[in-house]
Computed example of a mutant assay.
Amino acid sequence: MITYQPNILVFSPEQAEAYAECIRDHGFTSVKAAATQEEAEKYLPSTEVILGWNFPTKLLNKPIASSVRWFQSIGAGVDDLIADNLIPENITLTRIVNQFGSYISEYVFTFLLYILKDVPRMKQSQMERQWDPFISESLAGKTIGVAGLGSIGAEIVRKARAFEMNVHGLSFSAKQAHLVDCHFTPDEWGEFVKDLDYLVLTLPLTDATHHIINRDILLAMKPKACLINVGRGALIDEGDLIPVMQSGHLLAAILDVFEKEPLPKDHVFWSMLNVYVTSHLSGPSTTDGVSRFFVENLKRFLHEQPLHGLVDRKRGY
């Protein structure tokens, strides 16, 4: 039985009411849903907790938001919120964690197998009614490098083990170094990438990781290696990546995130045969998953326990 009911505002341009209904189903009744700035302004007075996506943060500096104590982002990436100086320092920020590992790791291996096993050739043979029993390569014995060993990176490592791959990792701390065969730190990018068949980026975007993948790093990779970005778009300097891909140095770049989203229709990536473009879909925020995470954090909030996904503004994530 929930005795104290904090005033909760759910903000989402498209799914606010769906999230609110899920939260109410868990016994929290003081929940308002807003899909527009006008609705947010209406419900902000006396609001203590916000679950939000694309929230109009300029409202948080107004007197109507003086009661807000905690802002839970619906997504995992919070670089935009951290950079937003309109959010008062006294508001606690949290992000979704431990929700996306399965989805994103399946996305990664979907493309690795699609390319390695040459699925397009198989389908073309079918269309042409050609019997073409070619021998493809195996992931076993290949070397995958995972940059970022949080919950997403750790799940990619786990699945790589199932394919009997060699696994290297890079992270800003060595807390998860035991997960990989070789661990590297951020001052060892050149050493980290030089032996990889596949480089997977799951890092958060911070000042230290902005454009961390540049021409020098790309050219330090093995010819015909593959780059996969499921982290943040600005981890890669797209201006450097384009000529590297045009030169054929890398076999493929699999990109789910970009510096500007949606990717402009006239962007060269759309037409490059060795670049695979997807629409920031590898790690979906499902209504049920986000709501369960938020409700668990609400219970911790009510009992004054440390919140999951707590954001360190100085660290950047």
Rank of each mutant, 00 (worst) to 15 (best):
D132E: 11
L263Y: 00
F134L: 04
A225W: 00
R315P: 00
A83N: 15
D118I: 07
R121Y: 00
L218C: 10
S73A: 15
I144K: 05
R121A: 14
A208M: 02
A253C: 03
L179I: 03
G283W: 09
N85A: 05
Y114R: 14
R315T: 10
V10E: 07
P63G: 04
S136R: 12
A35Q: 13
N98R: 13
F172R: 14
V193H: 01
S67D: 14
Q305E: 15
A177V: 04
Y43H: 13
R121F: 03
F192N: 10
E38R: 11
L307A: 12
P262A: 06
A208R: 12
D197L: 07
Y276F: 15
I135S: 07
I74A: 12
L139T: 06
D216M: 10
V157T: 03
N214R: 06
G150P: 03
L219E: 13
E41I: 01
E89L: 04
L263I: 10
I87Q: 06
N214V: 05
D80E: 10
A76M: 09
R161A: 13
E191L: 09
E89N: 14
G190D: 04
R158M: 08
Q99W: 02
I96K: 15
I87F: 02
E89G: 08
E38D: 10
K62G: 09
I217E: 06
G145I: 01
D195E: 13
G148K: 08
Q72F: 07
A35Y: 00
F109P: 11
I212M: 11
N54H: 09
I115C: 06
P204N: 08
K265S: 10
L307H: 04
K42Y: 02
A35D: 08
V78D: 02
S171V: 02
K117T: 04
G145L: 05
N166D: 14
K222R: 15
P284M: 06
P223M: 08
I8R: 12
M165A: 12
K123N: 15
L235Q: 00
N61G: 15
T206C: 03
V200G: 03
W270M: 11
S285R: 09
P120W: 11
D181S: 13
G233S: 11
A34P: 00
L116P: 01
F100G: 01
S67A: 15
R315L: 07
H280S: 13
F192R: 07
V230W: 05
Y4V: 14
T286M: 06
E261A: 08
L179Y: 01
L81W: 05
R313D: 07
L298W: 00
G75W: 10
L273C: 01
A225I: 02
D195Y: 03
L203V: 04
L281P: 02
A154Q: 14
T92N: 05
E48W: 01
T92V: 15
G145H: 04
S291F: 01
Q246S: 11
G75C: 07
F258L: 02
C22G: 03
S271N: 11
A177Q: 12
Y198S: 04
F100I: 01
N214S: 12
R300I: 05
S73R: 12
I242C: 12
A162S: 15
A160I: 01
H183E: 00
L60G: 13
H183C: 05
F100N: 03
A16R: 05
T202P: 00
S247V: 08
